[in-house]
Design a protein around this nucleic acid. Structure first.
Lengths: 209, 209
DNA sequence: CATGAACGCGAGTCATTGCTCGCATTTACT
DNA sequence: AGTAAATGCGAGCAATGACTCGCGTTCATG
């Protein structure tokens, strides 16, 4: 991030100010185009055009199309890993609706600001390597949800917890497209509705003797 | 469908026996490949190869790639329209779990047998024309769900019904990937879990005075 | 069997798109 | 100002994939 000093560390590229900005712009543009068109249908030329630069400029900062997706996905992975730390079983002590707010609010905000995230993580047309790279994160998220559910509903068996956690994650994924297509004015109501959805499901899970 | 007669109607192609079979094989293959790779990432050559024919043969029956997706989508649309007729508000008289079984069982079976359906109807990379063609069906499904919900929870306002119906539909979409990746032995349990998910959500919606 | 039409093939064409290269411009530092 | 490196461009190169074409095969009919 900070290499104004001439001594420099690791990657001692000199004039990084513009470069870093360009990279950020390119990733932003890539995120938009990926979100709109999916992975295979987006062209590098479209990304460059969206960022307002020429194809050559794009390829000065990224060796190929995959690398762009990688860089975006890595950023997403880092943020998701941070968000995942919210999924501690201690939360189970809270009232269910507050628990849901604590977990869902940051998660939904992140997804709203990064609509390309689900495309790159779960699109059917992403390069296999990218899918492999993020399988562990998916698994870890799943485990986090399963643990939380286990704390909420101790009577459930491990395989039931796995299944319920998987269903919960897929419910979440499923409503993401709604987030980005909903006009901002109706967002709060939608977020409430999503919480209601989880509230209902989890209540049934907990209430099963 | 049945044109053994030589008089013929509309499209009086003569030797349809083999041809119809090929078309069915090609659509079946296309469904598989679309489901695996999404629209833009599937190549017509891959479809032909999956069907065990040459590219030229494929293009004898379909003018272009879009037409293949169209044919598949039209078939899906027809089946979905049939399934949608199950969504009558009369169902609201039934116990909630039986209502859910009546609606979800056929729906889930259809989706399980046609994994390409969500890809073609909701993929971000389908040609715009295809998306337009099926927007009405989507809207009609949404209205059906909203009506059913209205019968179940009469105290909800129209805009709340719309929102809840949209969320319900997206929940459904979201769990579809689970269906096709779940080993057959665990399918019944998954289906039960999906019903539980809707049961919880709808119960909260109904129970709100 | 003869014949014409449907069927089938797969190498080849053409447009698209990922990507490169040579050169011009900007910037940081002397 | 002088410089060298970083940045920028956009016309093109090459690979991919949608689609065609000419020819051979199979089948329903007379």
């Amino acid at each position: 991030m900070a290499q104004q000093v001439e001594g420099a560390v690791a990657a001692p590229k000199r004039r990084q100010a513009r470069g870093e900005r360009r990279i950020a712009e390119l990733l932003e543009a890539a995120g938009q185009v990926f979100a709109e068109s999916g992975y295979s249908a987006t062209t590098t030329n479209a990304i460059a055009a969206r960022a307002g630069v020429s194809p050559g400029t794009l390829y000065q900062y990224f060796p190929n199309k995959d690398a762009i997706a990688d860089a975006l996905a890595e950023r997403f992975a880092a943020e998701l890993e941070t968000l995942q730390r919210l999924l501690v079983p201690d939360l189970a002590a809270l009232p269910l609706d507050e628990l849901l707010s604590r977990v869902l609010d940051p998660m939904l905000r992140f997804q709203l600001e990064n609509p390309a995230c689900p495309v790159l993580f779960m699109g059917p047309d992403v390069p296999q390597r990218l899918a492999d790279v993020h399988a562990p994160l998916q698994a870890s998220l799943l485990a986090g949800v399963a643990d939380l559910l286990g704390a909420l509903a101790p009577q459930l068996q491990p395989d039931e917890l796995q299944r319920s956690a998987a269903v919960a994650l897929h419910m979440f994924k499923g409503v993401l497209p709604l987030l980005v297509t909903t006009p901002p004015a109706e967002l709060p109501a939608l977020v409430e509705e999503i919480k209601t959805m989880f509230l209902g499901y989890f209540t049934v899970l907990i209430g099963r003797g």
